[in-house]
Write a protein that binds this DNA or RNA. Structure first.
Lengths: 335, 335
DNA sequence: CTGTAATGTGCAATCGTCTGCGTTGGCACA
DNA sequence: TGTGCCAACGCAGACGATTGCACATTACAG
């Protein structure tokens, strides 16, 4: 702007007004300035603008890991809808570490983001950093991996509902002894999906059997361990429902190498509908979670809050999931 | 800072110096200020800092799509190594559109990023926007999908080498009529991988046969079309090498539904080593490209340039790929 | 020919942080 | 008492864009 001003012999204020199309400027001056600006390829310094108005038009996003297809979809939705409303997005990954999560929050806040979208790390079982944000009146929305008690808006899936659907589906296939492979117990989705699993069992008059609930730390090794333990159970279970697809894929791979046939020997189901679920052999029954949609809703609500379009009161948006029945559960026991 | 200054009855400059640990301050004053800053949970405004020093300590990244596992890995590497050196990262996706790519560049430049890491969209066949960056002396590095003529640093895979490896592997399996399924012809990787494919054929004294080079626009429909065309060729080819895994997976799925056996009827290979490649049935032979590593190298070089640790002259870093032989190519023709 | 309004521009302050230079006060020494 | 020096801190300007207010110029009415 300074350079344009010097070249045209006017003040910087005039330049600013011309580019803002202020009505109190001489049309001729305005024309010259706009022309010159284009010629010199002037691009406003967003930093300076943000500093002045104390709004950066930037949102911060924290996800456990970008390489997960589900979170990548969320990010994609967030990006698209943030851009549509003139916002930029800074993305961080916590790598499933609470310390990294805290560090991410610090840098994003320092960067003056106008709001945050957070999906909690696997490790996060203590929430001071979130309450801290809340007390400092920094806008944020939790999605997918949320903490229920914090009075902020949340976007989740009906995880219990999805787990109910898939368990119900397995029960209809005449499976009775159904294993639930859970992730770490304090994860939100571990709990919710267990709820749905148990509810479906209850409806069929099946009592909860603690032996049929397995816990994996979600690493490949632990998934394999669980797969073997299940295979060696006597009597062998009829079906297995894994909390997330990657676990189911690891189980499937291990079973295949052990010579166990799916779905003939045991039925199998996952959750999330990762791209891999469709292409493994046999294709994996799972529950679809529209990640892009989740990102879209989360960011839209956050922006509505920022722009005063939504009420201040936190809301909870619950997305429905869809059962995707595939061959891995096409297994009708005759009893 | 202003609030701290008021509470302690000193000037803002003193606060600034205390927090910068300036030696010309009374230790006692310094102690008090640091204490108070911690108590009030002071966090510096990075916008203001950036404005002052005209460096935002932020990098911009543009990838065709975040949901691709390969690009997600790159981003992950970029993130990790940028953070290690005190930089933040703003990520954009071009959605394979040149217009979106240009728009992304504009906003990132306006946001005063210190440098850019760009992987070109599928559509990008004209490069004014890149030359423009170059002329404005904005630092950027191209990775994976690059344009060769621009005098900036690039990080690529030895795409020709990888294609050579996989084609050679197929030839060793005694396949002779090998189809190459390419993406759009002006894509960098389409060309490079074709080079490697042809080189391997040449070494075996096989002449280039235009009929054996198929072009897909990489959509599911077009991949299916290509799969069918190949299946109906007379005589049927021995093997197919697809430019990227997703194409190979689509071909595989289509062939399976047509009753074609892999690798018995035809061998198949892809490129990239996507997670899906390992779990399809049969597992897909492919070429591994370490995306995380690529991101790491690209960002490290960019930061070295920015910090004056690397010479100004553009360099080209070429990463080697690794053949991942799997069952889909385990096919030894007896002729 | 003067007063007044309308029109078009410039000045200066602001956002939060940083830093060169100047100021203040205290002390030692001549 | 005067001079010089040093430690400790404040002032002011800068980064770039914006905007209320003041100012200058002109036109026009009285």
């Amino acid at each position: 702007m300074k350079e344009i001003a010097k070249k045209l012999g006017v003040s910087v204020s005039t330049i600013s007004r011309a580019l803002k199309d202020s009505p109190e400027l001489h049309p001729e001056t305005k024309r010259k300035i706009v022309e010159m600006a284009k010629e010199m390829n002037y691009q406003p310094n967003l930093l300076a603008q943000s500093l002045r108005i104390s709004r950066s038009k930037t949102l911060g996003v924290i996800v456990p890991e970008i390489t997960s297809h589900f979170f990548a979809s969320c990010i994609s939705g967030i990006q698209d809808y943030a851009n549509k409303r003139g916002y930029n997005v800074m993305i961080c990954q916590s790598n499933e570490s609470i310390e990294q999560e805290k560090a991410n929050i610090r840098t994003l806040v320092s960067s003056q983001v106008d709001g945050l979208l957070i999906s909690l790390s696997r490790e996060t079982n203590q929430f001071d950093h979130l309450y801290d944000l809340y007390n400092r009146e920094i806008n944020f929305v939790l999605f997918d991996r949320v903490q229920e008690d914090i009075p902020v808006s949340k976007v989740t899936f009906n995880d219990a509902g999805g787990a109910y659907q898939v368990t119900h589906h397995l029960l209809e296939g005449n499976n009775r002894r159904i294993v639930y492979v859970s992730g770490p117990e304090d994860m939100y989705i571990s709990k919710k999906r267990k709820e749905g699993y148990l509810k479906a069992l209850a409806e069929y008059g099946i009592e909860k059997d603690p032996l049929l609930i397995k816990i994996s730390d979600l690493t490949l090794e632990d998934n394999v361990r669980v797969a073997r333990e299940i295979a060696e159970m006597v009597p062998r279970p009829d079906a297995v429902f894994c909390m997330i697809d990657p676990v189911a894929v690891d189980v499937l791979t291990e079973w295949k190498s052990m010579g166990i046939k799916i779905p003939e020997d045991m039925a199998l189901a996952g959750f999330t509908n990762n791209p891999t679920a469709a292409v493994v052999e046999p294709p994996l029954t799972t529950v679809a979670q529209p990640g892009y949609e989740m990102g879209k809703l989360a960011v839209t609500h956050l922006l509505d809050q920022l722009d005063g379009l939504a009420s201040e009161d936190p809301i909870s948006i619950v997305l429905e999931t869809t059962l995707v029945p595939r061959k891995s559960s096409r297994h009708f026991q005759e009893k």
